[in-house]
Deep mutational scan, measured.
Amino acid sequence: MASQGTKRSYEQMETDGERQNATEIRASVGKMIDGIGRFYIQMCTELKLSDYEGRLIQNSLTIERMVLSAFDERRNKYLEEHPSAGKDPKKTGGPIYKRVDRKWMRELVLYDKEEIRRIWRQANNGDDATAGLTHMMIWHSNLNDTTYQRTRALVRTGMDPRMCSLMQGSTLPRRSGAAGAAVKGVGTMVMELIRMIKRGINDRNFWRGENGRKTRSAYERMCNILKGKFQTAAQRAMMDQVRESRNPGNAEIEDLIFLARSALILRGSVAHKSCLPACVYGPAVASGYDFEKEGYSLVGIDPFKLLQNSQVYSLIRPNENPAHKSQLVWMACNSAAFEDLRVLSFIRGTKVSPRGKLSTRGVQIASNENMDAMESSTLELRSRYWAIRTRSGGNTNQQRASAGQISVQPAFSVQRNLPFDKPTIMAAFTGNTEGRTSDMRAEIIRMMEGAKPEEMSFQGRGVFELSDERAANPIVPSFDMSNEGSYFFGDNAEEYDN
């Protein structure tokens, strides 16, 4: 993207840094990872977990959730003011799984939030270390993106479920800051804005008074975040219109849905970061690795190297396929839920299948599930090659597409044709070009129609051997075009429920 120079890199967003050079960025990201790792080690000690239990991804998720809940100030305040039966607002906890007599047992633990905050700050040299908290939120978000298709949420806001490739980060909490905003897809931002506008339509006082002023500035800020994701002048001009509207209503909703559809071809720039579970960072720190000293990046080879040398386990339900569970977590670790499966298959070195073909449910185990038949197995999170994460949407291309997802959002900077089903997408653009945004709409449609099938995206960008740390010898991959490109292809993934 041309304006790259004016933006802070995501590592800076990730670490609240002012302008830093590459070495400083690597050190501050490393410091953040160190903090998460030290916190995780301490929690495993508190909970008396064995090494194996500490490497269980379900335990990692519970521990991450506990610290996120302990620092969720708004919710904590709300819980104190609106006490609900049987919930102690000062405590947080969740299921911890232990191996007892050759069987997995679930144990519900409860801790004072104050105590968890103390352990977290102690692991982070006394700081609140917001960057580390956001990092864990993005890992949870990436896992949700890989596990669930947001059909219901899309339909509720009037969008087409086939636009799911635009929904990265749709389950990120509001408090995820600049680093969170960077990884949100165009569809996620559109959905947040539509929800806001709908509230304004239904509630006369939404934009009024002292609160209304705050609401208005939040609305304009979200519009600017979305505008910054678009790469064409016409899309940005249309966002200006939406932002400046005196009284946002149905016309703005129409414009936003139009823009979301246009992003299936004229893709937005959305950041991709490899955020790993805390149970990967903990053992690495415990083994003596100093992330701050060595430096770390979320968008280069580092996460690949770390996963190459990590042992992570997962509980497996009786009829689940461990290899499929591994694929789910591998995609989440690489922030690749909406990437082209052919690119992923090449990088991973084994075939990556669409969601609907995987015999696996989510990673988390519900409290009512029976533990008797639970097994555990090693997650295979290694890769054959590594590639640089991208934040450009890439230019655009036609490809055989599917009944489910009709476009992709690249996660890796790797040369390819970008699949999208042009006739299906263009069919949504018939007729409606009147109104105050008509010239911009016409211009956007013209650009979409001009998108050429034979153009290559990320020209000359390749993948790298894991021994090639400096990215000196790019390998331009070859793809098996007979395979499906979309992950949520004609899909039956479970729906995400809060």
Rank of each mutant, 00 (worst) to 15 (best):
M1C: 10
Q4C: 09
T6Y: 00
K7E: 02
M13P: 00
E14S: 02
Q20P: 15
R26N: 00
R38T: 08
F39V: 09
Q42E: 11
M43E: 08
C44H: 07
E46T: 12
E46W: 08
L49H: 03
L49I: 10
Q58L: 06
A70H: 05
F71M: 01
L79G: 05
D88R: 00
D88V: 03
K98A: 11
R102F: 14
M105Y: 11
M105F: 14
L108C: 07
L108M: 10
Y111R: 02
R118K: 14
W120L: 06
A123M: 04
L133R: 03
R152C: 01
A153C: 08
R162Y: 09
S170I: 05
G177V: 12
M189E: 05
M196I: 13
D203S: 07
D203R: 01
R213Y: 10
T215F: 04
Y219E: 10
C223S: 10
K227E: 10
F230Q: 07
F230R: 00
Q231H: 15
T232S: 11
R243T: 02
R246Y: 14
I253N: 07
F258E: 09
R261F: 07
I265L: 15
R267K: 15
R267C: 04
S269E: 03
A271S: 13
K273E: 05
C275A: 13
P277M: 13
G282W: 07
V285C: 10
E292L: 15
K293I: 01
E294N: 15
K305G: 11
Q308E: 01
V312T: 13
I316H: 09
P322M: 13
A323Y: 06
K325Q: 10
W330C: 08
M331N: 09
A332N: 09
S335T: 10
S335G: 11
F346Q: 09
T360V: 14
V363G: 03
S367Q: 10
D372W: 08
S376Q: 10
S377V: 12
R384I: 01
G393V: 08
V408H: 12
V408E: 10
V414F: 06
R416N: 09
P423A: 10
M426K: 02
G435I: 05
M440S: 10
I445R: 09
I445W: 08
M447A: 06
M448V: 04
Q459K: 13
R461M: 06
A472V: 10
N473I: 09
N473K: 07
V476W: 00
S478R: 09
S486I: 11
Y496M: 07
N498S: 09
